[in-house]
Design a protein around this nucleic acid. Structure first.
Lengths: 72, 72
DNA sequence: TTTAATAGTGCTTTAAAATGCACTTTTTGT
DNA sequence: ACAAAAAGTGCATTTTAAAGCACTATTAAA
């Protein structure tokens, strides 16, 4: 999963749940400014930040083995 | 996937591939100090760092939806 | 057991993430 | 079209990740 995809996933998931950035920020404990920056494609979140956000959105960060020769 | 699990996964995968920290650091472009710190359980890597390491190890970071009531 | 390789730690510096505040822009609902 | 809500941006500060270096500790090979 590419860098930008992860960001996009968070944003899409939040929107799907109809949660505002403000609410997500409050629920996750991540600063609003941080979330805004993150979602607008800037920055390089730490695993902790990503984890906090994912958690509230009912998602989780994981590592999986890439399957070779399966370019889409 | 929990925070510490991700760290553990990286380490285990590296060891399975019989790659030293030094080599992984070189190949991934992540500083050796950073990798050492990371693997020894300290720190909070950025998504970029995690991505670089995962990449070399043939893994990728992903976000998945947590399946409720499936504790284990 | 000795030594060579690999892994972990303390200290320090630099770069950047995280944050708040105030403001602008965009989106949405009436 | 207008107003309200939500999202995005600039600026400044604090915190901390990333990094190198030198050292210690642990592990593996002779």
């Amino acid at each position: 999963m590419h860098f930008t995809e992860i960001i996009k996933t968070i944003k899409e998931r939040r929107e799907a749940l109809q949660v505002t950035q403000e609410t997500l920020a409050e629920l996750s404990g991540v600063g609003l400014r941080t979330l805004k920056q993150f979602e607008s494609g800037k920055g390089n979140p730490t695993l902790l930040t990503l984890h906090k956000l994912s958690d509230v959105l009912g998602m989780e960060v994981c590592l999986k083995i890439k399957n070779i020769a399966a370019d889409k």
